[in-house]
């Protein structure tokens, strides 16, 4: 029982050179993200379906203040840059750069979540616009909430990497967790671009 299966797999990889440049874990992460992307594709399809079928309610937020969503978009895009900075660092073996990049990314992620929370609370408290006030409310809070949940998961993922980085778990050769967190974070950012376009900008052109 004590034979490490990772060891067996590694022997297979090295002896037969089948795995190529990408590690097994990289492939697993790709398919995992593909499946996650399908979750958002389904949510967005449901959102559009309801939008097209809907003919009573106003399919729009009660305010048209785009400052906060634009700021959040900038924050999230910036965090994509910083997480890439972190990944480049560890690929060169620079743990300091990794720690700085991860810290900045987590901070930006937290800023994004604060921005989202601020927008939600102001919508609910000031505009009396909630998940149950209309079908658009349901769709809006679900889509942004799902995305916010994924940002939270990604931030936790990065935070675990940060703790491990300070403990010296990562090196130039061994840093798959960082790579996976980076991939996941980029994915979350790309999803946000779809969400922000659909939820905030498309309704303006109708």
């Amino acid at each position: 029982m004590s034979v490490a299966h990772g060891e067996q797999v590694r022997v297979l990889e090295e002896e037969h050179g089948q795995v190529g440049e990408r590690s097994l874990n990289w492939w697993g992460m790709v398919f995992f993200i593909a499946s996650e992307a399908l979750i958002f594709a389904n949510l967005i399809a449901a959102y559009l379906y309801l939008e097209i079928r809907n003919n009573n309610d106003i399919w729009q937020l009660p305010h048209s203040n785009l400052f906060l969503p634009l700021l959040n978009t900038a924050i999230l895009l910036g965090s994509s840059v910083s997480v890439h900075f972190a990944g480049t660092g560890i690929r060169k073996g620079n743990v300091r750069q990794l720690i700085i990049g991860l810290s900045v990314t987590i901070f930006l992620g937290a800023c994004f979540l604060v921005g989202l929370a601020y927008e939600w609370t102001s919508l609910i408290a000031d505009e009396h616009f909630s998940i149950s006030s209309s079908i658009f409310g349901s769709a809006f809070f679900t889509l942004t909430g799902f995305h916010g949940l994924h940002v939270t998961i990604g931030a936790i993922f990065l935070a675990v990497c940060l703790v491990r980085a300070t403990k010296g778990h990562f090196s130039k050769q061994q840093h798959f967790a960082v790579q996976a967190a980076e991939m996941y974070w980029h994915f979350v950012d790309v999803v946000w671009l779809f969400v922000v376009t659909l939820v905030y900008f498309v309704p303006l052109f109708r």
């Binding site: 996650e36 449901a46 309801l50 079908i135 349901s138």
Partner: peptide, 29 residues
């Protein structure tokens, strides 16, 4: 499977958070 996950989550939101995804009377379908 993501389709089922999404369908289930939306129904749970309907049931417990007051959303209206599947309620025709409130604009859902």
């Amino acid at each position: 499977l993501p389709s089922l996950t999404v369908a289930s989550v939306l129904l749970l939101l309907d049931r417990h958070m007051g959303a209206h995804f599947y309620q025709y009377g409130s604009g859902g379908d």
